[in-house]
Design a protein around this nucleic acid. Sequence first.
DNA 1: CAGTGGTCTAGACCACGGA
DNA 2: CCGTGGTCTAGACCACTGA
Lengths: 260, 260
Amino acid sequence: MDEQSGTDRRPPSRRIADDLRASIRSGELASGAKLPSERELAGRYGTARNTAREAISILQGEGLVVAQHGRGVFVRPRTPLMRLGANRYSRQLRSETGLSPFRIEVTKQGRTPKTECRSVTRDKPPADVADRLGLDASTATVIRRENWYYADDEPVQVGVTYIPVDVAGESPLASERTLGKGSIYARFEDLGYRITRIREEISARMPYHEESTGLSMPPGVPVIEVLHTSIDEQHRAFEVTRFVMRGDLNGLDYEMPVED
Amino acid sequence: MDEQSGTDRRPPSRRIADDLRASIRSGELASGAKLPSERELAGRYGTARNTAREAISILQGEGLVVAQHGRGVFVRPRTPLMRLGANRYSRQLRSETGLSPFRIEVTKQGRTPKTECRSVTRDKPPADVADRLGLDASTATVIRRENWYYADDEPVQVGVTYIPVDVAGESPLASERTLGKGSIYARFEDLGYRITRIREEISARMPYHEESTGLSMPPGVPVIEVLHTSIDEQHRAFEVTRFVMRGDLNGLDYEMPVED
DNA sequence: CAGTGGTCTAGACCACGGA
DNA sequence: CCGTGGTCTAGACCACTGA
């Protein structure tokens, strides 16, 4: 009754990883369950501990398990994603609830939202941002606002907003960390920029080292990067925000018309 | 002139990884450049080879480098992303060019596109798909069409389309692998379903084991998953497609109105 | 062929968590 | 305190690449 019938060409580390993966998929190792310890696996398969460890590291890279120092290795529980939609920018939603869609989503999950503007500075825009704003990257200056988004004090997103100085002027957008009622898009409206269209460019990648520590991300979890551009009635791009979101906690949900 | 002034609490593997990462960022190790060999690094830092190897595996997990057996470890070149937009579904684009947006994007990059319908079967819908189609997951039957998308014979995307049997009927959608001129949405129009709105739910995750082999993905690269729903004038969801795309080759680009 | 990464061994010590 | 993962060593052999 040996599963591998003598001709298993997989190296032992793969075999252990495959077995564990199968157990996770079948539900035998349920979400949150503890895997056998490295030493236990090594003994069971007759390998060195490092070999069992290598197997676990494969599963870590696939985002299937998380190791906790001193406790063990656990099947990574799949938390439901927050679903951020284009309605993030809806004026109606803004005025109805007085809450940002982020806060609504977090609250819906029974967690406590928090947002924090960490800095407001003047800076040169990154090349891609300058391009979206129609600015010259080498000469232009923008206001840079860095916002952090939390659920239960756990950071889940960062958003860096770039506003041309010509747009922000001496308004609160250019200097204040807190922007008052109706949040940032109300302030743009004060200045005569009313959002009518948005462009969102989405990509996925592994986090930079700073991001994975800043967002305290477990290994094997990618980020979603969204480069957002706000456009007004006169087709002016008046603001660009780069969102970086933990991929295990966030998702996007767009519904839109198909333009002929 | 020692950089670490005696009090470097980082383990050697981290230190090697940090140094290499810095070299990559600074451009000292350019895109595509070869890293020092594992043995070379071990010698240079006075560690065992495994320790240098561990450092490289950290960078692999971050998607910064790729190892090639027998050749060396290289800085992963960042290929430009394909930018898939909502105009994928535009009738105008379809009729103007006769090409699918996928083919246009790949051609734009100087590569050769290929698409292939691998199978057409009848199946039970997955729960999330059934939900989007307004079907009962346990009783309903759908047509399942599996499509693979290639650039220069390299697979870059998979799309699995689900169509309720009531919609597909006995049309080519229900059985033919090739759908003829104007592609799939033209066939839906033949049946009276004209796409007017779409919903796209986007997430990012590490590939399943089958996906990473099927799409021959290097380690440290996530996938983008898009659950797409097509909606017609009468608000009927008539088709759902789940796209799984290599995150290092694909991006999404939406422009849409903000609905009040 | 020499040089590279891929895998493995059998130990060792440390740091953390929980009883 | 013990059991866990985190890190490291100093070897070894294999498989692949390219001259």
